[in-house]
């Protein structure tokens, strides 16, 4: 049984890493700030969730699981908030530079 849990946890962490890579590729390839934010908020968010889940499976106590959950929750909220604030700022800059009205 422990082997199975270790295996699942490793698989989850690997899957999370794939999503982080996807987020990074998107960050590098996508054409503008807004599209890049999509890559960062969504792909990295799921990547973190999968890695957190993978680590939580091997955690030794409830306190540890709680800490991991807390970290995931706050990072998720912060990334959504940060994405929104960056996009709002990018739109202000766009307007100031006279690019594209809305």
């Amino acid at each position: 049984m422990p082997d199975l849990i270790t295996f699942i946890s490793a698989a989850l962490i690997a899957a999370g890493a794939v999503f982080f890579i996807a987020g990074t590729v998107g960050l590098l390839r996508f054409p503008d700030t807004y599209c890049r934010l999509h890559a960062l908020t969504k792909a990295d968010g799921l990547g973190l969730a999968l890695i957190a889940l993978g680590i939580a499976l091997t955690a030794s106590s409830f306190g540890e699981v709680f800490r991991i959950a807390l970290i995931w929750f706050f990072v998720a909220v912060a990334s959504a908030t940060g994405g929104h604030l960056i996009a709002t700022h990018a739109r202000r800059v766009d307007r100031a530079e006279g690019k594209e009205g809305s």
Binding site: L70, F74, V77, A78, T81, H84, L85, T88
Partner: peptide, 15 residues
């Protein structure tokens, strides 16, 4: 900073 920020502050600052 708009309402999204305020919601974030309300949730996270005490924590």
């Amino acid at each position: 900073l708009g309402e999204v920020w305020q919601g974030f502050a309300r949730l996270t600052l005490p924590a």
